[in-house]
Design a protein around this nucleic acid. Structure first.
Lengths: 193, 193
DNA sequence: GACAGTCGTTCGGTTTGACGAACACTGCTG
DNA sequence: CAGCAGTGTTCGTCAAACCGAACGACTGTC
């Protein structure tokens, strides 16, 4: 699966290498010594040393203990990178898909490679409700209405929103966004957790 | 740390129990048999059987192989549940902290226990810029301006936003939000990646 | 009914991760 | 300089994760 060097045949850093790097990075950022972290997490410092050196395949409990002792979420240790400042003007927005006339959605931010959260800006015209098919299981959608008035939420029981209102609901069931007034716009957060 | 029953002394399900449940849930959702998943992931089905039964402390590589074979992100297996529909009216918002007069931030959604993403609704009055100290390292902030006009971003090089504009920037450096017009409101996404 | 196919579980054997002790190294202190 | 309190490393032992094979149960086919 992954060779001893911690790199896959394709060349990108392997899981173990990522964990090793992340662990050391987070530990140093927290200003903890190897010994101290080992003691707090309740693992032998020899174990921690080997993990940080990229040796072997640590158990989840061990890794979990280290993550919590560091005060960081588990996934921080397995996912690699971090982004920078980015601006998108009101008109802009890549991959803007307007399947229904009067409805535009601009993808503001996504999290490749492990897309976990997408951020959309949406504007819609009244009288043209948008019914979405269920997304991937586990998806959660968050909507904050910026202006206008809209009906949003699960298709079975949508909620009427006014500016500033917020609603979240499972995204893996049919759901709807129906503008009730001209100039309706909203911010969508799709979470693939 | 966590006893053999997979439950902590406090009673909430332990890590191993969560993994066991998540794994079985995701596998059944994917319509795969235990044998099939084991073969695709390249792990012995006996190993998979034991993990799903809540026995022992699987290695990260093993778990990673299973997650990728299932086509789900790693964190899906370690974080527990899923939420339901939730509504917060414009006035509402728990834990609304207004440190500066004219500035209100309502916490719309957070992801305990492993807070990974917080969603805020913010309204601010002009003339009272809000300078935030650096947050936890790795934090990323996303801002979509809903109404008004504002200066937002890293303190060194903020960006002027108009309604619908979007900006994201590292949250672990000093950053600012300064309303430039009355009735300015925005949606914040704080990501703890 | 016998056979072949699957399902998930259980059983020895090998590999290996976690542990604790001893290790070399550095910086501080009397 | 000796002593000490840290650092991160390596080494031998033990428990356990992983594997492969064999198992009983259940399903469909000739």
């Amino acid at each position: 699966m992954v060779n001893a060097l911690g790199t896959s045949p394709a060349g990108e850093p392997g899981l173990i290498a990522v964990i090793a790097a992340s662990l050391r990075r987070e530990r140093e950022r927290a200003g903890m010594s190897l010994s101290e972290l080992a003691k707090r997490a309740g693992v032998a410092k020899s174990t921690l040393s080997q993990i940080e050196s990229g040796a072997g395949n640590p158990g989840v409990e061990t890794l979990w203990a280290l993550a919590t002792a560091l005060g960081v979420p588990f996934s921080r240790l397995v996912d690699p990178p971090r982004p920078a400042t980015r601006v998108l003007r009101a008109g802009e927005g890549p991959a803007a898909h307007s399947e229904v006339a009067g409805y535009t959605a601009a993808l503001l931010a996504s999290c490749p490679p492990n897309a976990r959260r997408d951020l959309y800006r949406v504007t819609a015209r009244p009288g043209e409700p948008r019914l979405s098919a269920p997304h991937a299981p586990g998806t959660v959608e968050h909507v904050v209405l910026a202006s206008g008035r809209a009906l949003a939420g699960p298709a079975e029981e949508p909620v009427e929103l006014r500016p500033g209102d917020y609603v979240s609901y499972p995204g893996d069931v049919p759901h709807i966004f129906d503008a009730l007034a001209p100039g309706t716009s909203a911010v969508f957060v799709m979470e693939h957790v």
